[in-house]
Design a protein around this nucleic acid. Structure first.
Lengths: 186, 186
DNA sequence: TCATTTTATTACCATGTGGTATTTTATGCC
DNA sequence: GGCATAAAATACCACATGGTAATAAAATGA
């Protein structure tokens, strides 16, 4: 019955609009299947969303994860992150993960757990990045690594969210670069 | 019939939860009135939300507006803004205006127009603040005033939104201070 | 006091939601 | 072919939403 197509359609819809604004009915219609078929495959709306998020994580988030754990220097990594957030065409309508996270309270338990899992993974990747930079002396100053990691993560989320709301990429880049300039020793 | 009480109840509900998650039914119940009464007074859900936003603007936003146009120096003004965002008890559950702005697409035309109006007002206040700082030489560097104003506004919004999502005030302050440190000549 | 107008309530409508019992259609298998 | 089995769709459920027509209650004026 083509579960992959349903996943694709749902991901596109959730991603381009907002997970809270796309109904199961709409997805069935777009995918050209009936509701019971969808429910037999995914169990519930929560199950669908979790499956979509899984798919999104391995199709999209894995790329940015690679950037963070690349092992290149901090400045180079930050530059790559800025490029991704401000220029990658996939982020034109925002990041599905951030959209879900922003609407946490509207998610079912499965999807919520996955969101928090991804959040924790991302955070620890940021921590590792900054810790390495500190160890190597590339990043100095008294700011705790954990605080820097939170900051970094939130700034990237903000930049991508701004892009989703129609802000011009050039301006987004400008602001994100400014925000991340705190990691540059001047 | 007590329109003020309805406004109060609705504001509290919208503010503490989210404008998109509070139904007209729920507000009527909480305010102890019937639905037609509410509709005679406010016309529509959109009208209610706009009235609530008006009330919020004069009760709460006016305070932060005062801070921005105080005419004190940039550093002092930023410090006051950080205090407001990170420590004012009224921002414990976030800012109603930012919540509405984040869910723009779910708003009716009246409320949306008001949101955009407030947004523009805030932006021009930030521009004026930074322009004055530049003129007086307190803020140097090549960053355009408009870009700085966008950045400032978004950082404050981010900080308050983080508070709403349960982040500890101390951490919010830390991150916002870090973000705004770009305005400090070092 | 009685009629008129204003205010509030009850009871309802159409629509959309997530989810499912029931029936139809297709798919092996002998 | 004929029959069991799995997969699909139709038609429905209960519930909640924003919004309103019909109606009762209360205030107001003469």
């Amino acid at each position: 019955m083509n579960a992959d197509k349903v996943l694709d359609v749902a991901m596109t819809a959730y991603w381009q609009s907002d997970p809270a604004d796309v109904s199961v009915n709409a997805i069935c219609q777009m995918a050209g299947i009936s509701k019971p078929s969808l429910y037999r495959e995914f169990g519930s709306e929560d199950g669908l969303k979790r499956a979509v998020l899984d798919s999104y994580a391995e199709q999209v988030l894995s790329d940015v994860f690679m950037i963070v754990i690349s092992g290149n220097g901090l400045q180079e990594t930050l530059a790559a992150l800025v490029d991704f957030a401000a220029a990658d065409p996939r982020m034109e309508t925002g990041c599905l993960f951030y959209k879900m996270r922003a609407g946490k309270h509207r998610l079912g338990p499965e999807t919520l757990a996955r969101v928090e899992d991804i959040d924790a993974t991302a955070r620890s990747a940021y921590v590792a990045l900054l810790q390495a930079a500190r160890d190597s002396g590339e990043w100095q100053g008294g700011l705790p690594v954990e605080a820097g990691a939170s900051y970094l993560g939130e700034q990237i989320a903000l930049a991508i969210t701004q892009r989703a709301s129609g802000e011009e990429p050039a301006r987004v880049r400008e602001m994100l670069t400014l925000a991340l300039s705190v990691f540059t020793r001047r």
